[in-house]
């Protein structure tokens, strides 16, 4: 059966919780709804066209730019944002400790992307890290410490610490 959802009032499943969205404008992105309607400001917006990756979230386990997702179209999906990671995953800790964070605006998106990359490719080569994170712009770090952070996680997981 074709299901139809109202585009202004709908429910989303985010980080395991159902959230009611009301009075959304037609065409609002998932990013806008997360930030402006639900107060989940961990996902950042820096381009609103899928170029910077700051708004990366997991949609049914897939990494997407939430700015390119029509919010009202994903009522039947499970969304995980940076807030859903819990705050102290090994990826997050490695980013903090490796110097991968400066201004930090790109960090939530990069952490989502790195988390997803390591799920898909548990032991990525440097090239695979680069290809996996190419959709996340960082203007501060020059990426060196970001690659380092991902490699730290890989090493820790191999050593059984996570």
């Amino acid at each position: 059966m074709t299901s139809k959802s109202d585009e202004r009032h709908f429910e989303l499943s985010i980080n395991g919780n159902r959230h009611r969205v009301t009075d959304s404008y037609p065409g609002e992105s998932l990013l806008t709804v997360l930030r402006d309607r639900l107060g989940l400001t961990g996902s950042k917006g820096a381009c609103e066209e899928g170029e910077c990756g700051s708004c990366s979230v997991l949609l049914d386990g897939n990494l997407v730019c939430s700015c390119l997702v029509l919010a009202a179209s994903v009522t039947n999906c499970s969304v995980v944002t940076v807030e859903g990671l819990g705050g102290s995953t090994d990826v997050q800790t490695a980013f903090v400790e490796s110097g991968a964070i400066q201004c930090g605006f790109c960090s939530p998106g990069l952490i989502m992307a790195a988390t997803n990359l390591l799920e898909r490719t548990p032991e990525p080569t440097v090239d695979e890290i680069r290809e996996g994170l190419a959709g996340n712009l960082c203007r501060c770090t020059g990426y060196g410490r970001i690659i380092d952070a991902v490699q730290v996680v890989v090493q820790q997981r191999k050593n059984g610490r996570s």
Binding site: T41, G42, S43, K44, G45, T81, V82, E83, L85, G86, G87, S88, Q92, T93, F95, V96, E97, I101, G104, F105, S107, P108, I111
Partner: peptide
């Protein structure tokens, strides 16, 4: 480590936006 590092990593750090 940066004093704001954890907040930035978990998305709770408040940027002006």
């Amino acid at each position: 480590v940066r004093p704001d590092g954890v907040a930035k990593a978990e998305g709770s750090y408040e940027f002006s936006s």
